[in-house]
Structure formats: C-alpha cells, structure tokens
Design a binder for these strands. Structure first.
Length: 164
DNA sequence: GCCAACGTTGGC
DNA sequence: GCCAACGTTGGC
C-alpha cells in the first residue's frame, strides 16, 4: 500500500540561500547539504520521500517566515560536503564507509503569493502546536502536520490543488 | 548585537 | 554516565 505524502519545513537563511536562489538554481533544485544535527539528519535519511512537500522557511530574516513551497526530488544520501576538507562542513570523524551526515534534494514548486511571517504564524490559533512557532525550536528540518501545511498555504494565498 | 534555549563535547 | 563548558541557532 502506498504511503501518504508527508509534509516538512526546512529553514534557510536567505542571506545564504533564499527561496529565490532555489528558484534560480539549475533545474530549480539543490542538495540540502550542510545539516549537522542528528535529529534533522535522521529525518532526511529515514523519513523524507520523493514527492513530499516542504515549507521553505527564511530564518534570520527580516521578518522570518515561509517564502515558498518545495518538493523532495531525491531521498536521503550521504552529504558530500562532509568528505571535502576544503568545505566548511567537512567532518574528519566521518568516512565514506560509514557516513555520518545525509542530505536530500529539493526543487522549488511555487513561491507563496503572500509571504507568511512568523508573526502571522504565531497569531494563528490553528498553528498553536506547530513546531516552528514553539519557543526555543531550532531544528532546521521539522515535520509539519497536513492540516498545518494546508493552513500555511491558505495564509500564503494558495492551496495544495493550486500547486499540482 | 543580545541572549535564551538548545545540542555537543569531553573531563572525570 | 554525569554535567559543566562551550558553540550554535535564531527571534527579537
């Protein structure tokens, strides 16, 4: 029996790699490399599947918020940057035989017609338990409930059916 | 730029 | 295996 599509939120600092950068990238896709947190690693390695949808969140932005929607186009594989001594994400404790860090590939699906700021997210009672609005939540790859995902799309002026 | 919250490291 | 010290995240 086919598994239902899952929903996620991924954080990126727009000064480093914004949603616009993803749109402009070759094929509008990129390797989500450089994540060095075990929980996020596990999510990318084990849980994210091709076709899952992602809220693309701008952290450390003015204001922070959800900028667009992306889609998982390649499932977890060893993050190449951990093997590159010249890369800032190089991890000398990792090896190709036993890689420590994993990444996925994502592709831009659609920019939200209206940017959804964290202030707006926090102001929506339906999103009270959403991970990203919780105090002290730093996880850069986090699950999103289907109802939360739909609600954020609605706030952003679109819908799941409009995306497909 | 501040600093609270959190995750990781390493001495013991 | 505890936990203090340290580094990072990320909203404000």
């Amino acid at each position: 029996m086919p598994k239902r599509r899952s929903f996620w939120l991924m954080k990126s600092e727009p000064d480093v790699f914004s949603y616009g950068d993803l749109v402009s990238a070759k094929g509008s896709r990129t390797h989500w490399d450089g994540v060095r947190n075990y929980q996020a690693r596990n999510t990318m390695r084990d849980d994210m599947k091709v076709g899952d949808l992602v809220l693309y969140y701008h952290s450390n932005a003015k204001p922070p918020g959800v900028a667009g929607v992306a889609e998982v186009v390649a499932e977890g594989y060893p993050d190449p940057s951990q093997f590159d001594p010249g890369d800032s994400h190089f991890d000398p404790k990792s090896s190709r035989e036993d890689p420590r860090w994993f990444c996925v590939d994502i592709r831009a699906v659609a920019e939200l017609p209206e940017y959804v700021s964290i202030e707006a997210l926090k102001g929506n009672p339906k999103l009270g338990t959403m991970a990203v609005v919780q105090r002290g939540q730093r996880l850069s790859v986090q699950p999103v409930a289907a109802a939360e995902f739909r609600e954020v799309l609605k706030m952003g002026g679109t819908s799941l059916s409009a995306l497909s």
